[in-house]
Design a protein around this nucleic acid. Sequence first.
DNA 1: TCAGTCCTTTGATATATGTCAAAATGCGCG
DNA 2: CGCGCATTTTGACATATATCAAAGGACTGA
Lengths: 218, 218
Amino acid sequence: MPVDLSQGDMQRINDLVQKKQRVARGDYLYRSNDAFHSLYAIRTGSFKTQVLHEDGREQVTGFQMTGEIIGLDAISTDAHTCDAVAMEDSEVCALPFNQLETISRELPSLQRHLYKIMSREIVRDQGIMLLLGSMRAEERLAAFLLNLSQRLAARGFSATQFQLRMSRQEIGSYLGLKLETVSRAFSHFQELGLINVKVRAIEIIDLPRLQAAVNCSS
Amino acid sequence: MPVDLSQGDMQRINDLVQKKQRVARGDYLYRSNDAFHSLYAIRTGSFKTQVLHEDGREQVTGFQMTGEIIGLDAISTDAHTCDAVAMEDSEVCALPFNQLETISRELPSLQRHLYKIMSREIVRDQGIMLLLGSMRAEERLAAFLLNLSQRLAARGFSATQFQLRMSRQEIGSYLGLKLETVSRAFSHFQELGLINVKVRAIEIIDLPRLQAAVNCSS
DNA sequence: TCAGTCCTTTGATATATGTCAAAATGCGCG
DNA sequence: CGCGCATTTTGACATATATCAAAGGACTGA
């Protein structure tokens, strides 16, 4: 948590953050309906979150990476409302929420930080609604790739070459598309010279045109 | 805000909540990029919130009614990230956010309430993602009608007879559909005997079958 | 009250994406 | 190292929804 705090305060946060926890690839960090105790800060690795409809339909609601906080949805009902699955071997810090609440009362900057993190999640979700509600298949995929690229760059990785951690099926679920459609969109972007795709290895060749593709995929 | 508070505390909240504000039908309560000062509690009337894409596309992200809080998205950047438009003559209470923050430090139950409200918004958004990402047109409309019905019932109105405040175009934007598709879905539900539609006047005739339609619109 | 405008409905047709199927490729495990 | 399974790609075809168009209805403001 990148909050700007003074010495002793930092200590209290550190105490809170002791418990590290490993999650193997494919394992669930939590499941829908699990009792809520902690938020989780991802230290290494990455996760997907998904909601399941009773009739078996599933929707991936996000792909999270290092430094991101998951579990915010569970505050509302004291139970998790989605599943969190590790997409690779990962490490998280459990942040017991009642302790967070207590400390945040005494540390205005932590309190504010928590509000901001939650608000940011709401804004992110609005962006996905815009994507799902008004973009076409290739626009969605372009937006997805650019978003990944940005977030990787922000973490010091290459913005133009990376390895996808998720399957076509998972990307499709996230983008509201079938896996075949995702695959075709990848192939088409490659034909157009926007990217190189070798299964899960992605190289962005023409960033400006990929950005343009978000607006009109014609 | 239905928080359970003790006498004097309630006074402080009341002080905060003094400023009532009228918003005429069609007027903006706030616009994207407006500086953020307050959350708004809707006292009477209803609003829609929408995000705009640079290329003119717009996406309605929600329809809010009495008792709901809007503006949570703005906390993240201190600027609003969507527009809020009154769908009828309405009244809101501005809740200055820095005062809310201050008071919530001293009133754990208010602090918790704020976290819960934000978390609930995140859960709501997940539900919309599921709808947009994996449901078909008629399933979406059925889900929309049932959601409206529930929320009206929770406010003491009829769950089976109500007046839509929004146009087919706005419903379509919210559901990721064109207005003609929405209109056809309404007509089809009427043919099936699930609802009566007279333009914006809706009567739900067969609630169980409408609920069933959310799962498979066949 | 009436005219004008906007909203809604409905039809005919186009198109993007889904479905089904099969082959190709990559990857984990023995 | 190679077998077998899972994932990805690609094709042919089906279908849900969008698009275009026109007519009918409802609401607004003078």
